[in-house]
Structure formats: C-alpha cells, structure tokens
C-alpha cells in the first residue's frame, strides 16, 4: 500500500494539471456551454442594434437604477462604451445564471450521470477534484465575461465610432488606455462571479441531481438579487454577494475609486472561502454512490 501510494503521489502536480485540462476541454466542448456562450455573445449585439436604431436621442431618462442607462447614452459617441453597457446589463442576471448552470452541474451532473466515481478512480483525490472543478468554473467565469466584452467590442466597433474615451469624471483618455480599462473591468467582473461560483459548487456537492443544483443556484441568485433591492434590508445588503457588483464602474473614474471595488473583491473572497470549504467538507465526507 505504502509503495503504491508513493508511486501514485509523485506525478500528482502534473496529474491535476492534466485533470484540469481535460475538465476544461470537456466543459467547453459541451453543447450546453457553447449555447450559453452564444447567448451571452448575443446580448451585446442586441443592445448595440437597439441603441443604433434608437440613435439620435441620447436618452433623457438617464436616471434608471440598473446602471446601464448611464453608459448607454455614451455608446453612440464611442463604441467602447458598449463593452461597459453590456457588462452592466449581463452582470446582474445573465452572467451569474450561466455560472450557476456550469457550477451547479459540475459535481451533481457527474453524480447524476454516474461518471463521478470514475473520476474518483483517477488518483487525484477528492480535494483535488473539487479544486479542479472550481478552477474550471472560474475559467468559465473569465471566458464568459471575455466573450461578452469581445462581442461588445466588435459590435461597438462595427456600429459606432471609436476614439477617445470620456471617463465618468469628465476626463478623456486615449483609446488604448480605454481598452486597458475595459480589460480591467472584464477581469473585475469575472472576479465578481467567484462568489456565485462557490455557492453553486457547494449546492452541487449537496445533491446528485444536476438539474436540481442548477435550479437551486439560479433561484438563490434571483432571491438574493431581489433582497438586494428591498430598502428595508439595507443592514444586511452589504453582505449579499451581488451588492457591490456594479462597482466595476468605479474603474471608470479619475482617479479610480477603490473603496467599493475592494469591498466587492473582499466579499467575493469571503463567499469563496465559506462556500468553498463547505463544499469541501461535504464532498470529502459524502458517500458517492453513483
């Protein structure tokens, strides 16, 4: 036994990398994943076309609550703003919903399909498998966000002029710097999703039904989003994971206003730690029967 273990242990780092690679390829080869990404890529196109059709009027109703309107008025001047608008539009529901689907499916889907035990046969250990699953979900977070951003950038470049970017503070920066900020925003948006991903993973470790895990994750997301809008709950709201999501817009200030961004990332890290360790506690002690 001890000899066998020694043999097994040596190639581990490579092993988990290989496992990660195969997990990622498998996830991104699924039709379901591709369909999700296609839907996400479609949102900026829709928004862009809608703004193009509506062109002419800058939009007097700029006071809307969701954060989108503020950028929408800028889209006609600069296509790059379509990136910010699209992220602001997709971040509250579309993006976390697709994360919920992928994260919810990650363990429960395997258990449901009866493939989880074969995965465990691989000498990687449960903790490692869990980490690989989480890493795959996080990769999807980043890819999904970048898909939205790239699709928005292409649509924006095709439909609207590009050029100097006006920040919220009224300062103009060059297009190159604007692109950098857009990239930073995409990364922040992707990082904003690690909380949901951890919650999804935990729910996924609880059940053996992929559909149930997905539905619970998405349902929880919607519930939390609704709670976040009820003014009477303002005492609790700073601890809800979507609360600081739209703070990514603070990257467009001059100088950048870090306060909310830091709170957002801290909160996401906290959710990842709590629900990640809960998922670990559940997954490593669970009876895998399927």
């Amino acid at each position: 036994m001890s000899q066998a273990e020694g043999v097994l242990r040596r190639p581990r780092p490579l092993w988990s990398l290989g496992l990660l690679r195969s997990e990622i390829t498998m996830t991104f080869r699924r039709w379901r994943t591709l369909a999700l990404l296609a839907v996400l890529a479609g949102v900026p196109v829709l928004v862009g076309i809608a703004v193009k059709i509506e062109t002419g009027d800058g939009g007097p109703g700029g006071g809307g609550g969701q954060g989108g309107p503020a950028f929408i008025s800028q889209v006609t001047h600069n296509g790059l703003f379509l990136v910010f608008t699209s992220l602001a539009v997709t971040l509250p529901f579309f993006l976390p919903m697709s994360i919920g689907v992928i994260a919810g499916d990650s363990l429960a889907g395997e258990a449901h399909g009866g493939t989880l035990r074969y995965l465990l046969v691989a000498p990687a250990g449960r903790t490692r498998l869990l980490l690989v699953k989480y890493a795959t979900t996080l990769t999807f977070c980043l890819v999904a966000t970048l898909v939205v951003a790239l699709s928005a950038l292409v649509t924006g470049a095709l439909l609207f002029p590009l050029g100097e970017v006006t920040l919220l503070s009224g300062t103009s920066i060059s297009f190159g710097e604007g692109l950098l900020r857009a990239l930073a925003i995409a990364v922040v948006v992707a990082l904003s999703l690690i909380g949901v991903a951890a919650v999804g993973l935990f729910i996924s470790a609880l059940t053996s039904s992929g559909i149930a895990a997905m539905a619970t994750t998405v349902g929880l997301l919607i519930t939390v989003q609704i709670l976040d809008t009820i003014p009477q709950l303002s005492a609790v709201q700073p601890y809800l994971f979507p609360h600081y999501w739209l703070s990514f817009a603070d990257l467009l200030r001059d100088p950048v206003y870090w306060d909310q961004l830091q709170k957002n990332l801290g909160l996401q890290a906290l959710y990842a730690a709590v629900f990640g360790s809960a998922a670990w506690a559940r997954f490593t002690t669970r009876d895998i029967t399927a």
């Binding site: 800058g58 954060g67 006006t166 920040l167 009224g170």
Partner: peptide
Amino acid sequence: KAAEYSLVHNGNEVWAYDSGSN
C-alpha cells in the same frame, strides 16, 4: 452608481460635468 457629477474650480473657471447626461 455608474455615474458621477463633478465640479471643478480652477482660477476663474468653473466646470461642471454630469456623466449621466454627458
């Protein structure tokens, strides 16, 4: 939220910029 209203005073010039209405 995703908007800013700035007021800049420099010498004898005062600028106000509202990002919401640009």
